[in-house]
Simulated assay, not measured.
Amino acid sequence: MGKTAVAWLSLGVAVIALGLKYAAWACTGSVALKSDALETVINVVAAVAGLLAIRLAERPADDNHTYGHYKAEYLSAIIESAMVLVTAFAIGRASVGGFLHPVHVDAPWSGIVLNGTATILNLVWGYTLLRIGRARRSPALVAGGQHVLSDVWTGFALIAGLALIPFTGWHWLDPTLAALVAVNVLRVGWEMLRQSVAGLMDEAPDPETLQKMREVIARNAVGALEAHDIRIREVGAVTFIEFHLVVPGSMTVAVVHEICDRIEVGLRQVIGRALINIHVEPEYKAKNTGIILTSDDQKA
C-alpha cells in the first residue's frame, strides 16, 4: 500500500474517531471527554495536512527543486506538532473552567463505551501508522502515528477515571483528567516538534547508522586509500551521502569509477534510496582522518 493510500485511510479513521468522541461528550457533558474530542479535531486537520504533504513529497525533482520535494513531510510534521501544542493549551483552559464551574457528568457508561470504541480504533491504527511510517521512512506518517497513540493513552486514562465517578461521587476527577490530558498532549507535541525541526536542520543519523555506513564504505572501497569529510543526512525516505575518496595518483579513471560504483551499490543495499556524491582526490590530498584504508582493508 502506497503512502498516499495510507494517508487517506488515516483521514478516514480520524473522522470516525471524532464522531464517536463527539457523541461521547454530547451524551455525558464531561469536560474530559470534550477535551478528548478537541484533540481528535486536530487529528482530522493533521491527517489532511499529512495527506497533502505526502502527495507533494512524492513529486519528482524539477527545475526549482533539483533535490526533490522530500522535506514537505517535515513541514507537515511541524504543522501537526504546532497544532498539538495549541490543542494542549485549549484542553488546559477547559480543565480550569471545569474546576471553576463543576459540571455533573451524566450517563458516564454510554460515554465510556463510545470513547472506548474510538480509543481501541486509534490504538490499532496508531501502531499501524508507526510500523508503515518507519518502514517507508515517512516523517509525516510517523508523526501521525505518534499523535494518534498519544490520544490512545489519554483515552484509556479518561475511561478509567470516568468509571470511578459513579462509585466515588468525585466529580472533580473530570477536570483533573482533562488537565492530565493537556500535560500529555503537550509532551507529545514538543517531542514531535523537536524531531521535525531536527529533520529540517539536516541532523545527522544516530551513531549506529553512521558507523554502519562507514563500514560499508570501507568494505567496498578496495583499491582506494582514504575516505574523509563524510557527511550524511536523511530527508524522509532518501539519504544524502557525500564524501571525499582519496585514490593513488596512478589509478585510471575507469578503475576509480568502478570503485565508486561498488561503494554506491553497497550503500544502497543497506540504506535503500540514496543520493550519493563522491569527490575523488589524488593521494597527496589525504588528511589521515576519516576512514583510513589499511593493508587489511585492501586485502578484504
Score class of each variant (00 low, 15 high):
189 G>E: 12
191 E>L: 11
193 L>S: 08
194 R>L: 04
194 R>A: 14
194 R>Y: 09
195 Q>A: 14
196 S>C: 08
197 V>A: 10
198 A>F: 01
199 G>Q: 06
200 L>T: 02
202 D>I: 03
203 E>K: 11
203 E>C: 04
204 A>T: 15
205 P>E: 11
206 D>G: 09
206 D>Q: 13
206 D>H: 08
208 E>C: 05
208 E>R: 13
210 L>P: 05
211 Q>I: 01
212 K>Q: 14
212 K>L: 12
212 K>F: 01
215 E>G: 15
215 E>T: 08
216 V>A: 15
218 A>W: 01
218 A>N: 10
218 A>S: 15
219 R>F: 09
220 N>E: 14
220 N>Y: 10
220 N>M: 12
221 A>V: 02
222 V>Q: 15
223 G>Q: 07
225 L>E: 06
226 E>Y: 00
227 A>C: 10
227 A>Y: 00
228 H>L: 09
230 I>G: 11
230 I>W: 06
233 R>S: 14
233 R>P: 04
235 V>C: 15
236 G>T: 11
236 G>P: 10
237 A>C: 07
238 V>L: 14
239 T>K: 14
240 F>C: 09
240 F>A: 08
240 F>V: 07
240 F>S: 05
242 E>V: 03
243 F>S: 06
244 H>K: 05
244 H>T: 00
244 H>L: 00
245 L>R: 02
245 L>Q: 01
247 V>N: 05
248 P>M: 03
248 P>V: 00
248 P>T: 01
248 P>C: 04
250 S>D: 05
250 S>L: 03
251 M>C: 04
253 V>F: 07
254 A>P: 00
254 A>R: 10
255 V>F: 03
255 V>N: 08
256 V>N: 07
256 V>E: 09
257 H>V: 01
257 H>Y: 02
257 H>E: 08
259 I>Q: 07
259 I>M: 07
260 C>K: 09
261 D>M: 04
264 E>T: 12
265 V>T: 11
268 R>A: 07
269 Q>M: 06
269 Q>I: 00
271 I>G: 03
272 G>M: 07
272 G>V: 03
272 G>Q: 04
273 R>F: 06
273 R>G: 04
274 A>V: 04
275 L>M: 10
276 I>Q: 11
277 N>S: 13
281 E>D: 15
282 P>K: 11
282 P>R: 10
283 E>W: 01
283 E>H: 04
283 E>P: 02
283 E>A: 13
285 K>D: 10
